[in-house]
Nucleic acid binder design. Structure first.
Length: 106
DNA sequence: CTTATGACCCTGA
DNA sequence: GTCAGGGCCATAA
């Protein structure tokens, strides 16, 4: 494994652990915070690589449109939606209010 | 080496 | 508001 890839992966996981409860972050935002503004896609690759029993709040990661990047019929979608709702996040037409739930440093 | 694919984003219609 | 096109980068074949 190249160090750069590992570093990106580690940065993403770290940021993921910094997301407060009841907040969400977009892929692009995480990538930017990790130091790779244009690697928004690879954030998804990192999450995909996560074990299903991971303790990290991967479900707090959504796309730039405030939607979950899974098809509605997908089990992952239902799981993520349920977890977010359990933290107080409200879904409207399958989307959430990014203006309200978007996390920023500080 | 070239293609194809992906838990994406931005912009314009 | 939603949808489509173009772009970006890493991985697999």
């Amino acid at each position: 494994m190249n160090d750069s890839r590992q570093q990106f992966n580690d940065a993403v996981l770290y940021i993921l652990g910094q997301i407060p409860k009841g907040k969400v972050v977009t892929y692009g935002n995480i990538a930017k915070l990790a130091g790779y503004p244009s690697h928004s896609r690879h954030v998804g690759r990192v999450l995909k690589n996560l074990p299903k029993d991971s303790t990290l709040p991967w479900f707090r990661v959504i796309n730039g449109q405030g939607r979950i990047s899974f098809p509605e019929q997908s089990e992952r979608y239902q799981l993520q939606k349920g977890l977010l709702e359990s933290e107080g996040i409200v879904f409207i037409s399958g989307k959430i209010n990014l203006k309200q739930y978007a996390w920023s440093v500080g």
